[in-house]
């Protein structure tokens, strides 16, 4: 690691005040610390968000489930409120990384990093979640702007995420057998806003599949998805999987997610 100054503020306000162009927020650190260790990133200042109580917690209020940015994946996976309100979200959180990583990694850290293979962005987009930062509220689709890119500006941090409850939702992930990251994964959700299908792992960032959404809106069954081909244009291609294979997997994972709900 290159040298950095370390701050551990006790409030969101202090964290934002300490931020600048050459500072990074540290959430659970499960991506950032390995990245710093490999000297792939550096910062003059590291602002640890771990001591800010207002960033933690899970609250179920009517038709909205609110999760604080610094809530760990393990806490989300084990939460009775999440398991009752949106079981697919608990299921997703319980399949991120491994148990040790889930005890440290956080919702806010995951979405702020926006790794193309990160799981949470699929849930946020499919459920139509709202990301609350310290300065504004953003629809999930406006928050995720590209590979490892978000709408967050300097001194802006994720405070919490509001998830509308789903009538039904499921997540299906095809993992790389070695790294265990998603090669392609699909989150299918039916909320008051309709049916949404969101994909991660396959492209440069999370994206929706409108053809599948309209087919499922008419008939919510795996059979309704047969014959819908996802284009391989723009999908990721690497030593693990071709773009064509990923395009094919999107159909398979979407059908599995829907089949688990019908």
């Amino acid at each position: 690691m290159y040298p950095f100054d370390y701050h551990r503020p006790a409030s969101v306000k202090d964290a934002a005040t300490q931020a600048n162009d050459d500072a990074l927020f540290l959430a659970g650190g499960q991506t950032l610390i390995p990245t710093l260790k490999q000297r792939l990133r550096q910062a003059a200042t590291l602002i640890d968000l771990g001591a800010i109580p207002e960033l933690r917690g899970i609250v179920l209020n009517g038709k909205t489930l609110t999760i604080g940015a610094m809530t760990s994946h393990a806490e989300v996976a084990a939460s009775p409120d999440v398991r009752n309100a949106i079981p697919a979200l608990a299921d997703l959180a319980g399949k991120i990384g491994d148990p040790q990583v889930r005890n440290c990694g956080t919702l806010g850290g995951s979405i702020a990093n926006n790794d193309p293979a990160a799981d949470y962005p699929a849930a946020l987009v499919a459920l139509g979640a709202t990301v609350h930062t310290n300065t504004r509220s953003l629809k999930a689709e406006d928050f995720f702007t590209g590979m490892f890119e978000t709408a967050l500006g300097v001194g802006e941090l994720v405070v919490k995420v509001d998830f509308p409850l789903a009538k039904r939702a499921a997540f299906a992930k095809f993992r790389n057998p070695a790294s265990r990251y998603a090669i392609a994964a699909v989150f299918v959700a039916e909320t008051d806003a309709g049916v949404r299908v969101a994909v991660i792992g396959a492209g440069p960032g999370v994206f929706r599949v409108p053809e599948m959404e309209s087919a499922l809106a008419k008939t919510f069954s795996a059979a309704a998805l047969s014959g819908i081909a996802v284009s391989a244009d723009g999908l990721n291609e690497d030593m693990h999987a071709t773009a064509d294979y990923r395009a094919h997997l999107i159909g398979v994972m979407a059908a599995r997610a829907v089949a688990s709900l019908t």
Binding site: R8, G29, I33, A74, N103
Partner: peptide
């Protein structure tokens, strides 16, 4: 860390103050 399994190579000592 407070009873939960974590990877000590992926945490700063300062984080567990």
């Amino acid at each position: 860390l407070d009873g939960r399994a974590v990877k000590a190579c992926t945490l700063l000592a300062a984080q567990v103050d």
